[in-house]
Each structure stands twice: as structure tokens, then as C-alpha cells.
Amino acid sequence: MTPEIPFYMVLGLVIACALGAVLLRGYITSIIVLSIFSITVTVAFAFLQAVDVAMAEAVIGAGLMTAIFVTAISKTRRRS
């Protein structure tokens, strides 16, 4: 499979989302950008015909990790 222009665009989006997850202010913003990062990585895996890995990445990265991170941060942020 020869790499094509859309695949490079997806890779650029992956790097942009990774930088955004690190650099943006606010925990919730970072978590949402991290789940968008997982979706873009899923698209990249689908381009590379690794559908098994893409499915696992989508479900874990965008679904499970987002829920666990949001719950953990909402439980630890405010201390009385």
C-alpha cells in the first residue's frame, strides 16, 4: 500500500492533537483533545489496514480512558 496525501494529513492531525493535549490549559480540555487524538490514530490504523488495532484504539482511547480520566479528575480536583 503506497502512502497517500490523506494519510499524511491524518498523521499531521495526530501530531497536532498530541501537542494540544500536552499544551492546552485545563484538565477537561486536555482529556477531550486526547480522545480526539485517539480517533485520529484510529483513522491512521484503518489506513494501514490494521482494523483490529483500530477498533481497540477507538474503544479504549476514546471511550474508556475518557470516562476514567474525567471521573478521576472530578474526584481529585477540589479538596476541602
Binding site: 483490529d52 477498533m55 474503544v59 471511550g63 474508556l64 470516562a67
Partner: peptide, 24 residues
């Protein structure tokens, strides 16, 4: 996904995580 793991992409792990997301 779980029951077609031997026929199509996916399998117990992917389907199981989807089911866990449904619980959440």
C-alpha cells in the same frame, strides 16, 4: 464483535471493552 471474532476483525477484547463502555 465477540461472536464474529473468528470471522471478521475484532474479537473478545474489542467487544469486551465496548461492553464495558456500555456499562459506564
Amino acid at each position: 464483535i465477540v461472536f464474529h471474532g473468528h470471522l471478521s476483525p475484532g474479537g473478545g477484547f474489542q467487544g469486551g471493552v465496548s461492553l464495558a463502555v456500555l456499562v459506564i
